[in-house]
């Protein structure tokens, strides 16, 4: 028995629930064990606060306005890469999603195979693929688009499959009962039901890909990322501030847009 204290938790024993204590301490122990790996050093952290403020101060310089045309050009390239990669991935993911949905796949083996393929495709981060594709086809937006599209198929195919798996079965039976063929059932009974969630997913992925496309340039795979890193490395803060601002604006804009669209789809209101 524990000593009777005047404080207690709302459990039969008065002690905190085991699951909560166990998971909390597991996380704390893991953090304590890994602290040396991450080189956590609070002295250094707080010591550098001043530096960080000073650095932030340096960022606010008169922007280099002559850079603006190039910036716009690069931002446009970033957006174009995002759009292109997402569209390619969309075209590939639709059939793959059908094959990877338990209730739509022609055979369990196909299902397993496609599922595993998809999880392999999304396992490596976009930047790793970008590295690989850059060394395969050279610098430029092409390897960036390839890397983005490749990883996006991995995610989109999985999301699509999961959406298809939860569609209502009754309309499917209804259409099949009228003698519709294999593909017809999928096109006329499953896809219409899944469509709103598909749109939500595509918006979400577009958002994700835009963020990704802004940093692909880091490895020479096109977009604004290259200029971003260079201006940072060369201490061209007059450029950096413009680039950061542009990324912030574009990302926020798409973020709001996709929020709007998704809530409109969820609440079913159409303008």
């Amino acid at each position: 028995m524990t000593t009777v204290s005047i404080w207690r938790w709302p459990t039969p024993s008065g002690l905190p629930p085991l699951s909560a204590v166990a998971s909390l301490s597991a996380v704390l122990v893991a953090m304590w064990l890994t602290a040396p790996l991450v080189e956590v050093d609070f002295v250094r952290l707080f010591g550098s606060l001043g530096k960080m403020v000073a650095f932030a101060g340096q960022l606010f310089v008169e922007p280099e306005w002559e850079y603006l045309p190039q910036l716009l050009d690069k931002m446009l390239e970033t957006i174009e890469m995002t759009f292109l990669a997402t569209m390619i991935a969309l075209a590939v993911s639709l059939p793959l999603g059908l094959l990877a949905a338990r209730n739509a796949t022609p055979h369990v083996l196909v299902y397993r195979l496609v599922r595993d393929l998809l999880s392999l495709m999304r396992a490596l981060p976009d930047l790793v693929w970008a590295l690989v594709f850059v060394s395969a086809v050279g610098l430029g937006p092409l390897p960036g688009v390839m890397a983005l599209a490749f990883v996006t198929v991995g995610f989109m195919g999985k999301f699509f499959a999961e959406i298809i798996e939860v569609v209502d079965h009754k309309p499917v039976e209804g259409v099949a009962a009228h003698g519709a063929g294999w593909l017809q059932v999928r096109l006329f009974a499953m896809l219409p039901q899944a469509l709103p969630d598909f749109v939500g997913t595509v918006m979400y992925i577009l958002d994700h890909n835009l963020r990704m496309a802004t940093i692909l340039g880091l490895v020479g795979a096109g977009g604004i990322g290259y200029d971003l890193v260079m201006s940072m490395r060369l201490f061209q803060y007059d450029r950096l501030i413009l680039i950061a601002l542009a990324i912030y604006l574009v990302v926020t804009l798409l973020d709001r847009l996709s929020d709007r669209l998704r809530s409109r789809i969820i609440h079913g209101t159409r303008a």
């Binding site: 204290s5 005047i6 404080w7 207690r8 938790w9 709302p10 008065g14």
Partner: peptide, 12 residues
């Protein structure tokens, strides 16, 4: 105390 779900015995 209450944000940590701690109560007194009298509450119980």
């Amino acid at each position: 105390g209450s944000v940590f779900y701690l109560f007194r015995n009298e509450d119980m």
